[in-house]
C-alpha cells in the first residue's frame, strides 16, 4: 500500500514537473504571439511553422550560454537564488487539485500530489517564498540595479501578501475550510454557485494581488528595464536566468488554477463541458488575461504601488471581511 502510494506520488511529481516546464515554455511562445498580434505584429515566424519551435531555439540558447558569475557577487547565494524561484513555483503546485478524479484500469487517480487540509495557505505561503529568489539574487549580485530590484521585491512582497491574505479570508469564511477541494465541492452545481457572485470584491482584489505576486506587467517593478535595467536579473545569464523565467510562468499557472478553484467553480462540470476541460479553459483564460493586461496597460510607479496597496486595496479587503462576517452572523 505504502509503496504504491509513494510510486504514485513520484509519478505525479514527475508529470507535474515535466508538464509545467513544457507549458511554461509554451506560454512564452503564446505570450510573444499574443503580444505581437495586439501590437499589429506577427511575432516569431522563422523557426518552424509559424515560429512554434522558437521555444526550442530559446531553450538551446539558454542552455549553451555562459553561466556568468560576477566577481563582486556572493557566489553561493547568487547561484542558489534562481533555483529558489523555480523550485517554490513547482512546490506550490503540490497542493493544487488540478483535475477531477479519474480512473485508469480500475485504479483511481487523484490529480493532487499532497491532499493537505490547508492547501490554500500552503500554496500562498510557498508562492510567497518564491519572492526570496529575486530578493537574494538582487542582494547577492553586487550591482546597484539588482539591489534596487531586491528592495522593490521586499516592499512588494510585504505589501501584497497582506492583500492576498485578507482578500482570500472572506471566501474562506464562507466555505469554512482551507482545503482547495472543499472550495471546489462548495461550488458544485452550476454557474450560479460560483463564489465570484458572492465575493466579487474579493475576486478582484485577489486577482490584482496575483498580478503583484507573479510580478506581471502593471506591477513588474522588480525588473522594469526602463528604470532598473533588468532589476534583480541584471547580472544573470544562461539557464540561471531561464530558471527565473520558468518560475514566473509556473507562478502564472498557479495563480490561474487558484483563482479558478476559489472563485470560478474549479473543476466542476460546466454546462456540457466536462470538468477537466472547464478548468483548463479557465486557467488559459487567466494566462491570456495576464498577457492581455501586459499589452494594454502601462506599469505603475513604486509609490503608486504602495499607495494602491495600503490606502486602497487593504482597506477595501478589511471592509469586505467585516461585511462578510456581519452578513454571515445575522442572515
Amino acid at each position: 500500500m505504502e509503496t504504491a502510494f509513494i510510486i504514485e506520488t513520484i509519478v505525479k511529481i514527475l508529470v507535474v514537473l515535466g508538464l509545467f516546464s513544457a507549458l511554461a515554455g509554451f506560454a512564452t511562445y503564446v505570450e510573444r504571439k499574443v503580444l505581437a498580434f495586439m501590437q499589429r505584429r506577427l511575432g516569431p515566424m522563422h523557426v518552424g511553422p509559424y515560429g512554434i519551435l522558437q521555444v526550442l531555439a530559446d531553450g538551446i540558447k539558454l542552455f549553451t550560454k555562459e553561466d556568468f558569475i560576477p566577481q563582486g557577487a556572493v557566489r553561493p547565494i547568487f547561484m542558489i537564488a534562481p533555483v529558489i524561484t523555480a523550485a517554490t513555483a513547482f512546490i506550490a503546485m503540490a497542493a493544487i487539485p488540478m483535475f477531477p478524479e479519474f480512473t485508469i484500469g480500475g485504479y483511481t487517480v487523484r490529480p493532487i500530489i499532497s491532499d493537505m487540509n490547508v492547501g490554500l495557505l500552503f500554496v500562498l505561503g510557498v508562492m510567497g517564498i518564491g519572492l526570496y529568489g529575486p530578493l537574494l539574487a538582487g542582494m547577492a549580485s553586487g550591482n546597484k540595479w539588482s539591489l534596487l530590484g531586491a528592495a522593490r521585491t521586499a516592499i512588494q512582497f510585504l505589501s501584497y501578501e497582506v492583500v492576498t491574505g485578507l482578500s482570500v479570508l472572506a471566501p474562506v469564511m464562507i466555505v469554512g475550510s482551507l482545503s482547495l477541494i472543499d472550495f471546489n465541492n462548495y461550488q458544485a452545481g452550476g454557474v450560479g454557485n460560483w463564489l465570484v457572485w458572492k465575493q466579487p470584491i474579493a475576486f478582484i482584489l485577489f486577482l490584482i494581488a496575483g498580478f503583484a505576486e507573479t510580478n506581471r506587467t502593471p506591477f513588474d517593478l522588480l525588473e522594469h528595464e526602463a528604470e532598473v535595467i533588468s532589476g534583480y536579473a541584471t547580472e544573470y545569464s544562461g539557464m540561471r536566468w531561464g530558471l527565473f523565467f520558468i518560475g514566473e510562468y509556473a507562478n502564472m499557472f498557479t495563480i490561474g488554477f487558484l483563482v479558478s478553484l476559489i472563485f470560478l467553480g474549479g473543476f466542476n462540470d460546466l454546462w456540457f463541458i466536462p470538468g477537466a476541460i472547464a478548468i483548463l479553459l479557465k486557467v488559459f483564460f487567466f494566462i491570456f488575461l495576464f498577457i492581455w493586461a501586459r499589452a494594454s496597460w502601462p506599469h505603475v510607479r513604486p509609490d503608486q504601488l504602495m499607495w494602491l496597496c495600503w490606502k486602497v486595496l487593504m482597506p477595501i479587503a478589511v471592509v469586505n471581511v467585516v461585511i462578510t462576517g456581519i452578513v454571515m452572523m445575522f442572515f
Binding site: 495586439m38 499589429r40 494594454s296 496597460w297
Partner: peptide, 22 residues
C-alpha cells in the same frame, strides 16, 4: 479607462491587421 484599454488591444488582435514585413 482600464477596460477601454483592454478593449482596444483585443479589437486590434481580432481585426488581425498585421503590418509586419517579413
Amino acid at each position: 479607462d482600464l477596460l477601454i484599454g483592454l478593449k482596444i488591444t483585443l479589437l486590434e488582435m481580432l481585426r488581425f491587421n498585421i503590418h509586419t514585413i517579413q
